[in-house]
Amino acid sequence: MNATTGGHDPHTLAGAYALDAIDDELERRRFEEHLDRCAECAQEIRGLTETAARMGQAAAVEPPAWLKDRVMAEIGQVRQLPPALTRTSASRRGRTGRSRWWPRVTAVVAAVATAAAVTVGVLAIQARDQLEQVRQVNRDLTAVIAAPDARTITAPAAQGGAGTGTVIVSRSQDRLVFLAAGLAPLPQNQTYQLWQIAPGQIRSAGLLRPDTGGHTAPVVTAPDPGATQMGLTVEPAGGSTRPSTQPLLLLNMPAT
């Protein structure tokens, strides 16, 4: 009937949208564009979103008490977003325009950033096309190591820990490589996690799984602006958003 939407009335997607059940990014974006033009639909979405949220509240469970300390500690390091741009608030007042549908944008951007950070380290092992990944990592690795400004720092594990870490940084390539050797095997419910540490900011650089010889696959990533150290910690399986243990390895990033 409607050629532009493939014969489907976009309105019927309202329920799936409110339930976050549209996993096709393009389809969701199209629906959001439709919402921008259709005040009635936006109104309906509001009610349905509110309804879905009620379903969510009915499942309440007290989180462990330590979670609050972690959250309070983390917000001390997180820069808050300014209010939305004037353009958005103006169009909001007019109830029309192309304001984005809250809070998809920030949530997705943050989620992608987190996922990307966590994924970098595990890509080499988990990617579908393993060989191609390994080749790519090797190419990146070679580029960093062969760069004229490559600088290397190696340090042993902190007292009581086993292993050695090496970080190679090339500012001209805007890349760093992290390698570790001699790491102790961990139980199933724990993982090694790598961090880039800048004053006031710590970011995950991925989860590491050493092979039976205690070697990790090289992590190749861009240095965070201002990062001065790299740290390796032991975290619960799946990783953490912030280090929860003392670093096993702490390496000062080579200065340029």
Binding site: P64, I75, V78, R79, L81, G239
Partner: peptide, 17 residues
């Protein structure tokens, strides 16, 4: 627990939005 932490930090971060 991790996701909950992320969500609450996100609330802090984007409260102005």
């Amino acid at each position: 627990e991790e996701v909950t932490q992320e969500v609450l930090v996100e609330v802090w971060r984007s409260a102005a939005r």
